[in-house]
Design a protein around this nucleic acid. Structure first.
Length: 262
DNA sequence: CGTATTTGACCAGCGC
DNA sequence: GCGCTGGTCAAATACG
């Protein structure tokens, strides 16, 4: 890896280590400051359980039974909520995805309502964000989506993606969002079990890829057989798959927004 | 077999 | 204080 990418990753590792050590010490969330001056966690007063629960960071790191949630308290949340109304696509009975990762944890039929409410919480981490989907009785294609808390783990991932993208652009001397005649709109980090990170990008005629080791574009065949109509959205690959990019055995999975994993 | 979903139970908040 | 409501839990089940 290039030096600045290594430095960034090292800082993230140290940051996680600091968090873990502070929690194990039990004392002192106070004064805990992450590297590079970000992610400052402000301690809640020890007597105030409520304020602890209202902090997504403290929720994420509290010692609980599963995924950082309060183990026993089923106190109704008083977090700020945001409600949106979305319409299902024609022929579909589910609202369109919002690009975030959610895990369903409950469903119930509420008195006086025709359709059950579906309860979701943040899937990839423990940020405490929740989502409730309610189908409108009188307009079956319209859904009321209520968000509770903030899905700041996705925001964290996005920040990391921006860092990686900047690092890639630095290597080739490109400007923000632009790389010679080609465009990189996003770059995502690899899953934990992957061995390499890369970028796949394209212009209207060709698909190119490059990896972390050299960032030299290499032409590949075009168009990609799995993604003919949205080639410019295909931005992420796992290196072990790059050599036989056209293999029909690859699974193309939409991760979120414009992120794809082959 | 690991992960995601379902579903009945639990319980805090709220209205009366 | 009591009963109802609805958000959440967690064991059971489904799925890949």
């Amino acid at each position: 890896m290039k030096q600045d990418v290594c430095q960034y990753l090292a800082a993230e590792i140290l940051s996680s280590y600091d968090k873990a050590m502070s929690l194990l010490n039990g004392t002192a969330l106070s004064g805990m400051m992450m590297s590079k001056g970000k992610d400052i966690i402000h301690p809640a007063p020890s007597s105030s359980t409520a304020s602890q629960l209202e902090s997504p960071h403290l929720l994420a790191y509290s010692s609980t039974k599963s995924c950082g949630r309060p183990s026993k308290s089923r106190k109704r949340k008083t977090l700020a909520r945001r409600t949106e109304y979305v319409e299902a696509r024609p022929g579909e009975k589910v609202p369109p995805e919002d690009g975030l990762s959610w895990r369903k944890y409950g469903q119930r039929l509420v008195l006086g309502e025709k359709y059950p409410r579906k309860y979701y919480r943040c899937a990839p981490c423990c940020c405490g964000a929740t989502k409730v989907i309610r189908r409108i009785d009188t307009e079956p294609l319209t859904f009321e989506v209520t968000y509770g808390g903030s899905h700041d783990c996705d925001q964290e991932n996005n920040n990391q993606n921006e860092q990686l993208l900047l690092a890639a652009q630095t290597q080739v001397g490109g400007t923000a969002g632009e790389l010679s005649d080609f465009y990189i709109r996003e770059m995502v980090s690899t899953p934990n079990n992957s061995s390499s990170t890369g970028v796949v990008f394209s212009n209207s005629n060709s698909v190119f890829n490059m990896n972390n080791s050299d960032f030299i574009p290499t032409p590949t065949s075009s168009p990609h057989p799995l993604d003919n109509n949205s080639l410019t959205d295909l931005l992420f690959f796992h290196e072990s798959s790059a050599n036989d990019f056209n293999s029909p055995n690859h699974i193309l999975t939409k991760l979120s927004f414009d992120h794809y994993l082959i």
